[in-house]
């Protein structure tokens, strides 16, 4: 199938659904681009880094308005494109189209939600079936997720990942050796990269009381920077009311890009702009005005699209 990418982008921006066959072809094309990427992609500034978007399509469009259109601005997305918001299909479709259109200017790394298991629990699967009448596009998207890379380094200075560090990965070269072309496993270094969180309560790694998963402390972060000769760690994965948070004296930062998360958290969002001189600026933004109509609907329909008013709960 010959894809007219610019035409597809025009449709998606108007939240018009593309045909199923077109989506399948888009996913196939993106896979071809992703398969050649290293597990640690090397990027040059200037680049704008985006954290979790979670299907909040109007806020993604707002990011391009605020931080610049592609290809004028280079983008690195840190994962969690789908689930929770109402427009996961539109969000991931647009990002795939941008990747195809500007493969060297748009980079997509994998978050914990780019997974078959997680998307069945948190909304993307349901949305695909509702919008397309079958799970075919969900299958195409989730197969494509298996090709997404795991991390990036900007100007040999900023290490970027969705979640955080792993006790099995001391050196960047160890990340490069991971066989990433698979569903995200529950355990092991690939899981740690998309799941682990920084924690000020421990200096080293600590095992979660859940019985799986790590948090990492300041000493671990300092050692990682030292061994790999980079200056800071940039990650997403955790909601912050101000849109970003800096920890451990600024060597670890969280960037969060879904304002008013789930259309009800009332939080700000940000993107991190890394300039060619190496300076960093968190560009903070609020929910896009187009969300107003969703909020109106939100009072009337639940996540499964069922009417919930009047609420004669018992």
């Amino acid at each position: 199938m010959v894809l007219n990418i610019d035409e597809c982008i025009e449709h998606v921006i108007k939240t018009e659904l593309l045909d199923e066959a077109v989506v399948v072809a888009i996913c196939a094309k993106v896979k071809e681009l992703l398969v050649d990427e290293s597990n640690v992609i090397q990027l040059a500034a200037p680049v704008t880094v985006v954290g979790d978007v979670h299907g909040q399509f109007y806020d993604l469009i707002e990011i391009f308005r605020i931080a610049g259109q592609c290809p004028d601005t280079n983008y690195l997305f840190l994962g969690d494109y789908v689930d929770r918001g109402y427009f996961s299909v539109e969000t991931i479709t647009l990002l795939c189209l941008m990747k195809i259109r500007y493969p060297q200017r748009v980079h997509l790394i994998r978050g914990n939600h780019e997974s078959r298991g997680i998307t069945q629990s948190y909304g993307f699967y349901t949305e695909c079936v509702r919008k397309y009448g079958s799970a075919n596009v969900w299958k195409s998207f989730t197969d494509m997720f298996d090709y997404m890379t795991l991390s990036a380094v900007i100007d040999n200075t900023v290490f970027c990942v969705h979640g955080g560090l792993s006790p099995s990965l001391v050196h960047l070269d160890q990340i490069k050796l991971i066989d990433r072309f698979r569903e995200i496993p529950h355990e092991g270094p690939m899981a740690d990269l998309v799941w682990s969180d920084p924690s000020p309560s421990n200096n080293d790694f600590a095992v979660s009381p859940r019985g799986a998963g790590y948090t990492f402390g300041k000493r671990v972060a300092e050692r990682f920077l030292d061994v790999n000769n980079v200056q800071s760690i940039l990650r997403a994965h955790q909601l912050c009311q101000n849109g970003y948070q800096q920890l451990f004296g600024g060597i670890v930062s969280t960037v969060w890009s879904a304002p008013n998360y789930c259309y009800r958290c009332g939080n700000m969002a940000s993107v991190l702009e890394v300039s060619d001189t190496g300076s960093q600026f968190f560009n903070v933004f609020d929910a896009a005005p187009e969300n107003a109509k969703i909020q109106e609907n939100n009072d009337h329909y639940n996540m499964n699209g069922e009417s919930i008013l009047p609420d004669y709960f018992v």
Binding site: S168, R210, G211, T215
Partner: peptide
């Protein structure tokens, strides 16, 4: 008495860093 996630045993078996401390327990 804390619950564990379903795959906690598998997770514990496959990790190599046996000396890593367990974070302070609480009802997660």
């Amino acid at each position: 008495g804390l619950l564990k996630v379903a795959y906690a045993d598998d997770w514990a078996r496959t990790r190599q860093d046996t000396d890593t401390e367990i974070a302070k327990p609480y009802d997660w």
